[in-house]
Write a protein that binds this DNA or RNA. Sequence first.
DNA 1: CAGTGCCTCTGGATCGATACAGTACGCCGT
DNA 2: ACGGCGTACTGTATCGATCCAGAGGCACTG
Lengths: 352, 352
Amino acid sequence: MRPTLQTVADAVGVSRSTVSNAYSRPDQLSADLRDRILTAAAGLGYAGPDPTARSLRRRRAGAIGVLFTAKLSYAFTDPYAVQFLRGLASSAEQGRTGLLLLPLSMDDEEAAVAPVNDAVVDGFCVYCLPDWHPALAALEARGLPVVAGQKRPGSQASFVGIDEAAATRAAGEHLVALGHRRLAVVGEYFTVAQSTGPVTIKSPGDVAYYTDRERLRGYQEALAEGGVPWSSVATVNVARNGRAEGAAAAAYLLDRAPRPTAIAALSDILALGVLDAVRARGLRPGHDVSVVGFDDIPDATTEGLTTVHQPAAERGRRSGLLLLDPPTDPADRSVVLPTTLVVRATSGPAPS
Amino acid sequence: MRPTLQTVADAVGVSRSTVSNAYSRPDQLSADLRDRILTAAAGLGYAGPDPTARSLRRRRAGAIGVLFTAKLSYAFTDPYAVQFLRGLASSAEQGRTGLLLLPLSMDDEEAAVAPVNDAVVDGFCVYCLPDWHPALAALEARGLPVVAGQKRPGSQASFVGIDEAAATRAAGEHLVALGHRRLAVVGEYFTVAQSTGPVTIKSPGDVAYYTDRERLRGYQEALAEGGVPWSSVATVNVARNGRAEGAAAAAYLLDRAPRPTAIAALSDILALGVLDAVRARGLRPGHDVSVVGFDDIPDATTEGLTTVHQPAAERGRRSGLLLLDPPTDPADRSVVLPTTLVVRATSGPAPS
DNA sequence: CAGTGCCTCTGGATCGATACAGTACGCCGT
DNA sequence: ACGGCGTACTGTATCGATCCAGAGGCACTG
């Protein structure tokens, strides 16, 4: 049998508590006795207090759960997500806490909430979930601190994010000011079905994902102000947030008449794919077709993409801080970080 | 106070065990009573058995720890690591298990082992650690299943990996067969100091990292067989596994006389950087200078890089399987996956 | 009607630690 | 000699569940 505190205590001839103190509160016993205990423990092959038992008693798990939809692979592939995780990891590390990655099923009702109920963690970070996902209710029930990048009516969760709608409103105003009137939007989560192709979105409010809904709303507002009705805006859904998917989506838009003069993608990855498709047709980005992204990932700079910059790593870092010790005042539990429109080479005056 | 099993039991008028069974073993009680219990629990705001307490009793944490050196950011930036994690995540998911990412300090003795001792996990996956790292001893002491991609004398750990030396031996033989005699090797972990620049490696055996040591050994053997003494091989250490670093390392090699006719990088990322440097000098890869990588990441195909292919995702997947239920027979606890030399455009006959 | 077996539910022991009140003891001042 | 005080250590209660031997009820059998 593996040794426990008691095993060591018996071997040294002291009480269990004293052995515990030898590990957790060295100031509570003499240095001499502590040495004797640690030596005996090493001899017995005792590696220190059992983390699970300690967690139970201390009521601290030493980990925060990060919720992902379905495949974790996505998280590692998306540059924005990577930046976010880096930020989260940095504050976790500082708080002597690990990151527990939890995949949530999107179909199986059971596998969709089980990770939330079973995870040994001190709090949860919601990366991005649709409004209807059952895990959101499970999170509330569990009663642990939660930080989300999305707002949800009635939720106790902290918020760390940006004003998504204001960000795309700025981008939309930029396009309108350049004279664009025929626009299209490409994004990932417009429909539940994961397929690439044109979709009809009667109103941005219908979209189940917070970020996409808000970003669409921003574009809608900016365009409406510029006299462009939402019904004239083409919307294309993609199956996955990938460069090839962005190109495929753009193909739908570029090969039909009348061609849009500007395409707004809801992520940079997609926007880069759109650029590929534009160039593949011999069109010049920023002249024949303007392209705008979102996130400002490193490749956006390289490729001169006009996009909305958001502080990805900072979002992660602040999320971690809020989880590690949640402020009692609800007012302090909402952090809205600034975004900026970065105009580069892929946006220009609408062609006449 | 948060409700416990007992709270619910009292409310319904049954025993604690019965409430426990309602959640964990539904077949042990009547459907009717189970409904009443779950209803009462919902009414009390009881979200189900406490994961920590459950873990203690069941002796299962529902997570496996993944050990990283220092910054987690690295893990998310390296394409090979991402593939590996994807594989690991896929089998973890299947086994209803999460991934706990644990950063290990490389300097602070305390922070180097604490995560190993404190993590609530069922096993550990060692991604890549130097032989001297204190966490390795802590892992043995903890007595949990461990899977590593590196072999360590006297370790109980399972092994999932490749024959690193055989892989680079094949690459070395390829270069020798093409007539190369002046060679150089670029890698990340030759020295403890994290800086980019030439280093002297008297013997590959001196290198503290398993993979690099073995890969160097493979090159050494192939070259020795081809009559190229190790002492004539230039070695350059880089501070980080990045493309820019690869280019910087190549700069040292390309700007001195006599220029090596072939440069072997111990990762594709570095090799791509080397290619950048080669091209920046107006030299043609595969003609003036041959370049070989390792890993076969997606970009290697795109850029026509000659490299060693290794099944990254499969390594992760098999590691996960071995951790989830470790075979009793030690013979089954070692998996060596195949590698292949993929010859593309960046290697060619040595210039005369 | 006793005997057998199944189904449902109970209660105490247990997992491995930490918290905290309490005890033992040495040392000081008067 | 004795009260007061600080240090070093002990012992019991507790964290919140699961395990398991066994009790009670009920139907079925001979």
